[in-house]
Design a protein around this nucleic acid. Structure first.
Lengths: 261, 261
DNA sequence: TCACGATGTTTGGGATCCCAAAGTCAAGCA
DNA sequence: TGCTTGACTTTGGGATCCCAAACATCGTGA
């Protein structure tokens, strides 16, 4: 069990993402400590944490207010994350110590291939793919030789869809046969890019490693753009992020998906 | 006047940078509240802040300990910052709204040129150059169209030498005539890169904008590498960062340089 | 003499109380 | 009727107290 403030921050964070608060709604320490039945001390710590993440803002004299991220914000953040990953790929391709972790990359690639061949797109399969995808990306971030790249990525990964290696789908698309087929193609394309990245890093080709990793990230950015264009009214709540961390289900209403422990 | 916790965090932060604590020294809330004559509440907030910045670590059950950054850490962080700036340069070269802020870039370039021609390398001149340099870099980060790039840079700018547009010199080099000449050359080179970046952004050339900005960052990375090689025993305390924020002078001993308000 | 357990001590987390600053509102005066 | 000013209220920041967990230490029994 985490400490109360961390737990509380996670709760408020997911409330913000799920749109439980109005955009720009004011938050007060007293009110939050009341509704969550805790004292104001952990509330304050949680609010500071969220302020640091940019999810809420603190006006000079008077309280906090929600600063709910939009799809555009997510798009921008994903672009930044992708750019950082391309740096990691480049650095790793020139790192002498990379050979120790290349097998980890290979395992992730093979495992994703296997899951794609099974062809299921249910929750369990997506979770397994996500885990392997995350492993692939984390291995590169941690194996690139510059610890600060991974550190920076972790600092901006407070939203589930920004977690390193998170894969994004939206519920609406996954509910149709055609949508599932398209999503499977996306995964195939993504994993083939993984293979090229692997080769480039293996052979020590920094330009190619960086370029393909950039393209890999662009694939996701483009996907979000398509999602965004489909309907202006769609919010990030509809953009499911399959990732290691997870949005805490609201107490009322049905949980959109299970919490990962 | 900032709130006590922010002030306190700044104080502890600068103490860590200046090497007032042993590397890996343990910190306790009680001890810090004692030495700084404040209650434990703001201490806790300050420690959380520093933990988030990676300057201290929190072990599970038992307290905090210092995690003083090394020159290598700074090197890695500067590389990350440079990479993010190269993204900003690329994006800005393709942003339609860039023309509104191009004059700001031009002013900064001209002003730096003027200061170089004067040829002084005293504290006041360096501060003015720094201000213009920071203006140049900030303009690009804020004018690139992706707010998250600037946000991410600001999140990793807790150390003076990591502040966007910070220029680094070391005291030893600036104390000799030869060192001053070399530093002036460095500034000339840097500003000529600024001009190329300006042209590339102006004419909408993303590849060139990104490439030169990367090279511009590399210049600083290389400088730190030379600094690092000169003597293994040099710590970041000896690596002066001229930036908007500043290390708070220790109460005892002479202040290495004035605090900027 | 060594191992294990009980107890004391240290440390961080949480609750509660107090206070200063700033916003709000209404009454009184021009 | 409109503006100003004072009191009241709301809000966040800081101090202090309490508690549980974890480490250290000492004593006792095998």
């Amino acid at each position: 069990m985490e400490s109360i403030d961390t737990e509380l921050a996670a709760q408020i964070r997911s409330d913000i993402i799920l749109g439980m608060y109005d955009r720009r709604e004011r938050l007060s320490e007293a009110q939050l400590s009341e509704t969550h039945s805790v004292s104001r001390t952990p509330v304050r710590l949680a609010l500071r944490m969220l302020e640091h993440e940019g999810l809420i803002r603190r006006s000079k004299g008077r309280g906090y207010y929600v600063n709910a991220p939009t799809v555009k914000d997510i798009l921008q953040a994903v672009a930044v994350r992708g750019h950082l990953e391309s740096l990691a790929a480049r650095l790793m391709s020139q790192s002498p110590g990379r050979h120790n972790v290349m097998p980890d990359l290979e395992v992730a690639i093979d495992e994703i291939d296997r899951l794609i061949n099974v062809g299921k797109m249910d929750d369990a399969s997506l979770r397994m793919m996500q885990a392997q995808n995350a492993a692939f990306h984390k291995t590169i971030l941690e194996g690139c030789g510059n610890d600060y790249v991974g550190f920076t990525c972790s600092r901006i990964s407070h939203l589930p869809m920004l977690e390193v290696g998170a894969m994004m789908f939206d519920r609406q698309v996954l509910s149709t046969a055609d949508g599932i087929a398209r999503s499977l193609f996306r995964l195939k394309l993504g994993n083939s890019q993984h293979k090229v990245i692997f080769e480039a890093i293996q052979s020590g080709d920094p330009v190619r490693a960086e370029g393909v990793m950039r393209e890999h990230s662009n694939t996701m950015v483009e996907y979000i753009k398509v999602f965004e264009k489909r309907d202006e009214e769609l919010t990030i709540k509809d953009l499911i992020g399959y990732s290691g961390i997870s949005v805490i289900p609201a107490k009322n209403g049905s949980a959109p998906y299970d919490e990962v422990t």
